[in-house]
């Protein structure tokens, strides 16, 4: 508690203070991501047994499920930063949501493609217009819409406001994705893991999935920090502190 009060956390809400802090954190998050990925891949391929119904094809879920989790989670984080940005008129908050969008879109695409690669041998179809799949596809369009809107408006402050509004409105899609398997009669199976009941899967499979989910999570933080530093350099290029940064570096 003393540590929490000893540091002025608001100090880091300004780009000049946040930029070096982010630079310090990036290697740690990359390292954590690598360690979790190594453990997760080992469990996925060497420890987890063959599924008695699905054979080896079920190993796809070790990337599919964590990617799908991250696609929804990153959207909520992105929308939260967008909300802070609108409420507090803080430019770093908008930059954070902007930094998360491409990574979120990447995990959404990954969830869709790996789902398709699992669906083909298991369901006999690459794609079905099922509520879960359709709402996840809408999530991809929301990410792309956010990035495109941000890029299409020249004035950065107007671009921030417009894209943040889109991010907030689009957030209603996330609970729709999550509960789609309950609300509609979907081909996609229900949740194997829930907060309220014991997981319906073997503990080794669960551990493998959780390790890769942690790896994706740490990776997302690392790349979002790298990207937000790029955005700061690009957008604050006329600021004195950025100019001084260049003088130190070169």
């Amino acid at each position: 508690m003393k540590i929490m009060t000893g540091i002025n956390w608001f100090k880091y809400s300004s780009p000049p203070a946040f930029y070096p802090l982010a630079g310090l954190l990036i290697p740690w998050f990359y390292t954590l991501a690598t360690v979790f990925a190594a453990v997760g891949l080992y469990i996925s391929f060497a420890v987890a047994p063959t599924d008695f119904q699905q054979g080896e094809a079920y190993r796809i879920i070790f990337v599919h499920v964590p990617a799908a989790w991250m696609s929804m989670f990153l959207y909520l984080v992105m929308a939260t930063w967008a909300g802070f940005g609108l409420a507090l008129n803080a430019r770093l908050s908008h930059m954070m949501s902007q930094a998360l969008a491409p990574t979120g879109a990447m995990f959404t695409l990954l969830a869709l493609v790996t789902g398709s690669l699992w669906g083909r041998p298991m369901w006999g179809a690459w794609w079905v217009w099922d509520a879960r799949l359709t709402s996840e596809l809408i999530l991809l369009f929301l990410y792309i819409g956010f990035i495109a809107l941000q890029a299409s408006i020249d004035d950065p402050r107007r671009a921030d406001r417009a894209s943040s509004l889109l991010a907030l409105v689009g957030a209603v899609n996330v609970p729709i994705i999550y509960f789609s398997v309950k609300w509609w009669n979907t081909l996609h199976q229900g949740a194997s893991i829930s907060m309220t009941s014991a997981p319906k899967m073997a503990i080794t499979m669960l551990t493998g999935m959780l390790m890769l989910a942690l790896a994706f999570w740490m990776y997302s933080i690392a790349v979002a920090l790298v990207r937000v530093r790029c955005i700061i350099l690009e957008r604050e290029r006329r600021a004195d502190w950025v100019r001084q940064l260049v003088e130190v570096k070169f």
Binding site: G55, V63, M106, L109, L110, T114, P121, V223
Partner: peptide, 26 residues
């Protein structure tokens, strides 16, 4: 992969490609 090599390795391979692409792009 018990006959599912294409589906399994494409899934994991695509993950690796996208991650590498993002890191190098950044």
């Amino acid at each position: 992969m018990g006959g599912y090599a294409f589906y399994v390795w494409t899934s994991f391979g695509l993950t690796a490609v996208l991650v590498a692409w993002e890191v190098l792009g950044l």
